Computed example of a mutant assay.
Amino acid sequence: MRLAETVTFGGGGLDRSAALRADAAELERMLHDPTTRLLPIWRSKPMVRGDGVLSLASVPRGSNLLASRKEAPIFLGRSEESAWFALDVSGWEPDGQDVSTVGAFADHSEQTHPEFPEDHRFADLKMVMTRLAPRDAELAATARGLLAWHGAHRFCARCGAESLPAQAGWQRNCPACGAFHFPRTDPVVIMLVTCGNSVLLGRSPGWPDGMYSLLAGFIEPGETVEAAVRREVFEETGVAVGDVTYLASQPWPFPASLMIGCKASALSAEIRLDPEEIEDARWISREEVLAIFAGRHPEIRGAREGAIAHFLLSHWLADRLD
């Protein structure tokens, strides 16, 4: 798919400068360089600034907000000659501000810190991802994914001792047994399953009313991408799938997935739902998908803009999958 890397979080071209992660002297120099950008992340929400088109907000090294950080800064890489570091400032308490939806499926709340202008605020990345430039979106996704991994892997999986961050945040080491731990990414297949002029859409329990998307599922150990596509579609809907082709991928740091987008041809059209896997599934015609995108479908709301499901469906509508 020629447009594969135009997916949200893809194609940012961030220079990750992995060779610098073990260079303590250079990391320290960069942290004190006035051109270095420090990105605060509060409870998985990056600080952004602006209206309409947004950009990531960096804060000065002497900011009081940074006193709330939990661990050492994480080196994200270099962009436009500036080094970028992410800092977890979740220890800050936004007194008097709404935090009731933080961590929810859809968190529209935004929190502001009194030290910064009102257009600087912490926002859910899923809510603002399409308003960020590709480089900023990649930086934010990388920061969110790494900090989520650190938060969930503080203890050694081998012996249970508390581990310590290393390699500028790209590793955790166990001081007790010497084990090394690395950020994990969970591979997920997401399928554009077609039958003639129709595509297979489904919904999971707990999704907002009317929301449908492409079927998706985790790849199991010892399984190929193609086998995972066929298994997941059959398990959820009873639809048998034949040919499978790769289309595009998307890092999805909610918390740690890589969405592997595929096109699959159905061998059967009958749907037999597994209620433990999925709440509903339907064949939706191209004309209906067009109505969904236009917001005119009477029953169905489409996939979230910025998600790979929305990306694949829009290119299927435009006949641009090749």
Rank of each mutant, 00 (worst) to 15 (best):
S109F: 00
E110H: 12
P114D: 10
E115W: 07
P117Q: 10
A123V: 13
D124E: 04
M127D: 11
M127P: 01
T130D: 09
L132N: 03
R135C: 06
D136E: 13
A140Y: 03
A141I: 06
A141Y: 02
T142F: 01
L147H: 10
W149L: 07
H150M: 09
A152K: 11
F155Y: 11
C156F: 04
C156R: 03
S163M: 09
L164S: 11
A166Q: 14
A168G: 10
A168M: 07
A168H: 02
G169T: 05
W170R: 00
W170D: 00
P175R: 10
A176H: 13
A179L: 14
R184Y: 08
R184H: 13
R184P: 01
P187N: 01
I190V: 14
I190P: 00
I190K: 04
V193E: 00
T194Y: 06
T194F: 09
L200A: 09
R203L: 01
S204Y: 15
P205L: 01
W207H: 08
P208E: 03
D209T: 12
G210F: 04
Y212N: 03
A216W: 04
F218Y: 06
E220A: 13
E223D: 09
T224I: 02
A227K: 13
A227R: 14
R231Y: 07
R231F: 06
